[in-house]
Amino acid sequence: MDFITCDFDKLIDRTAFDCKIHQDLNAYIAQHAGQDEKRNLSRTFMYIEEGVLLGYYTLANASIALNELSEEQKKKMPRYPMPAVLLSRLAVDRSAQGKGLGLRLMSDFFRRVHTVSKQSGVAFVVVDAKDQGAADFYRGKLGFVPSTSNPLRLVLSTATLIQAFQSQKQASR
């Protein structure tokens, strides 16, 4: 798979990054992403042009618990939480906004999930929408469904994503 992002690099200046809207996303990349990398809590991928950080996203493993299982479902479904990959943060610097970089980062994230799903079980893709507008985009355009616990945390079946990549592969032949 070809990615447009590179692994987290602490030598890249992160203090100048400004996504304009959410200060916590600026603070995260400047102050906390390195610590999370060091502790293996999450992986941050950077989009860099001419040595300048223009965008990033953070990926971590997660799990999904089920509620309200019927007796029939209890026989079929695993009783333990199901594996997922979480897109916890995605941000674009103000200098690169309005040029489609956010969508390209999202595409990059999906390619990584697809790669991970070939090596380890991933039942769902989970995203944390920063606001209702973002949640509407995930739900209305990309087919995510809101979780029961949090309307801003949305879920997509990995099978749907794999199907999309298979279609793309077939179309390119």
């Binding site: 997660a62 999904i64 479902q73 479904m77 469904v145 099978a159 749907t160």
Partner: peptide, 22 residues
């Protein structure tokens, strides 16, 4: 993250077709 069992069951066994946007 919590999903209701019906939704999870459907997503796993009958995953929806990817949207055009996806």
């Amino acid at each position: 993250t919590v999903l209701d069992a019906d939704t999870a069951y459907q997503l796993l066994d009958s995953p929806p077709e990817p949207t055009e946007a996806l």
